[in-house]
Design a protein around this nucleic acid. Sequence first.
DNA 1: CCCCCCCC
Length: 561
Amino acid sequence: MSIAVADKQTKLSQLRDGGQRSFIVVRIVRLWDSIIPPRNIFTGIDFLAVDDKGFAMHGTIPAELADDFHGLIKEGHVYRIQIFEVGPRGRKTHLAIPLEALLYFNVSTVIEPIPEGIDKYPSHYFRFASYDDVMARNEKLYYLTDVIGVLTAATDVKSVTLNNNRGTSDKREIFLTLQSGQKIKITVWDPKIVELDITSIILLGYKPVLAIGGISIRDNQAYKQINTCSGTKFLLEPNLPESFDVRKSIPDDGKPIELLSSADVDNLRDYTYPDAKENRVQDLLYMNAATIKGLKFKVKGKILRFQTKQGWYYNSCKDCTFGVKKEPSGYNCPRHGDTSPRMNLKVSFIIQDGSFKLQTVVFGNLAKKLTGIDISNLTVSERLNLDQIPAIANSIIGKEFEFILGVSDQGYGPGLNFKVFYFDPVEQEQDISFVEKDNGDGSSSKDLMPHIQTEISGSSHGQVEKEKGPSVDVVPNLQTEINVTPNSQAQIFAEGGTPNCTPSASLTDAPNELSHRGTRSRRHGDSLFLNFFPFGTLLDRGSFGPLFFCFPTSSKKINFK
DNA sequence: CCCCCCCC
């Protein structure tokens, strides 16, 4: 096979929009099938390419050409690429880096591996965001976010029912402590769940440093929803300067990652409402409901009494929490159509701090935890007694709690009504408290990092922000790659370990790597996980049991504050 | 084909 020789090489930073006459030489540092959830639509093969100047570009191989190039391009390898196009993408979203111009393969593109003399090509490219960066970002940003931190905890896998009859999707929450000491919760969606092999990570026996490239951040009302997407890449114990910074700030405590119950985490708003402002009951009374909509507040108060004039439960759809009423045709849910009703707790109560009082409402499972009311255990007469709350609830009268509150439009009548998003009993003796470090600027790593990309001047794509320098790993092949082959769960390679611990042993070598195109056929090994860790039994506890426990040996009480 | 829950 003979390949026409383009006359000259161009560096990525010099590329202009349009068809390219010259060739480029780049390392493919990330490579993924771009798949849009929840219907798993395959839009093409995307990649992140870096040249020997440390300049990065997002590239894409259109879906029609994917089969032609699939076997020719592998993550971690360096290629000479000739005859391609440069330009923006129609839908500007989920790009790996803040650069609007992409590399586009076309039917004439020629790609040749460069086997030697490739040490100058960085093995990784990250632009790690600080906690404050993460909190400032949302779906308006067209590019994805990279983070690095210590992986401290993970939940079991839970199936989520999507809106608008779009089926279900599996998720697992993981918790990352960033260098500043602040924690973020990241939702890992199927099929990324198998790429972060939690079983193997537990077996490490310590909490590892984890770099994550390409997560998307959304504002979901007041809290940050941080999701994986098809472009997300996990790197365990990466050989990066930032790894050392993170480890220096967050020393190894010698314990494996914690396993949390997804049900509990869904009610844990310390993570999902990190911006909740501390306030007194008194402060909230002077606020304007219209202007604080969506905001969350952290307040302390005692439970004065219940308000049961409008009952302590409502009837909801059996499959969701929409309220349903009896119609001539039966019960009808806007989401699930014909349904049957079930009782759902909706408990209104007054909290007091000094002489100031606040009307609040708490729903569902959170209400069950707060009040101790278990609807399935009630007698018929208790259920029928709409204006008298079951006696067990009275045990919390007079008790003090810290609440996460937000204005509710589901309250009782006009005026300020607050919905409870989370509560935590205020106890005399605190057991173990997580000590949050003050939030420094988290930028010490910046000084150690080469600023290659930002030093490039006269780039034709002036969009690269000066926010952070790139993190460039110039020592390839030393970091542990997470093995993504579904049936090799127990394999995690140690630093500098096995010979197949090379970038090429990553995503593209998994035999069924492309099998999820347009399908939902892939299953992960969750049943194995659940067999190992019987969450249901361990976590079936009273209202105020330990929030978390550490598998497998200890069952300590931890207050996340 | 176009980026997933978290409602009441």
